[in-house]
């Protein structure tokens, strides 16, 4: 990968990586650090990374940093989700979904985001996270059940 390819990756994936890191870490400042360090690693390893695999490489680094490192350091306080759940006076579905996402553990949240935000398949998520395809499928289904249960529990949301 040359400097041109790297810069192309910045333009193409920095936003997506930032959104993913924001949801994983729960803090914009931490997400900023994750993006910076992920691209720093990509630049260091640019000779070994093909441009076609740069996105997966970035998310792999971001996943490790935001999930593994932050999980070990501090318990994530998820600021994106407001405390108030759905009420007829608070019909903001987005906030409800964020709150539902906050119900998940860090790994499950990352799996859901990789699936829904980036559209990765089970095997691709497995390569990024280091899990097997079966593990990814099981963890994702468990997360979906948790999310569904939360949303259904919210009065009259459905």
């Amino acid at each position: 990968m040359e400097a041109n390819d790297y810069n192309h990756c910045v333009g193409e994936w920095a936003d997506a990586l930032f959104r993913f890191a924001c949801k994983c870490t729960g803090q914009a400042a931490d997400a900023h650090d994750v993006v910076q360090s992920s691209f720093a690693v990509l630049w260091q390893k640019r000779k070994d990374v093909e441009p076609a695999k740069a996105k997966a490489f970035l998310f792999q680094v971001a996943y490790r940093q935001s999930v593994d490192n932050y999980r070990k350091r501090v318990k994530v306080t998820y600021n994106d989700a407001p405390e108030g759940a759905y009420t007829p006076a608070n019909p903001d579905l987005k906030k409800i979904l964020d709150r539902a996402l906050a119900q998940l553990d860090d790994q499950s949240r990352a799996l859901v985001l990789l699936k829904d935000y980036e559209g990765y398949h089970y095997d691709e998520i497995g390569q990024i996270t280091g899990l097997t395809e079966t593990q990814v499928k099981v963890y994702l289904h468990r997360a979906r059940k948790t999310l569904k249960a939360y949303l259904v529990s919210v009065e009259n949301i459905l």
Partner: peptide
């Protein structure tokens, strides 16, 4: 309900 668990960026 399951469709609702899908997140959009």
């Amino acid at each position: 309900a399951y469709e609702l668990t899908k997140f959009a960026p």
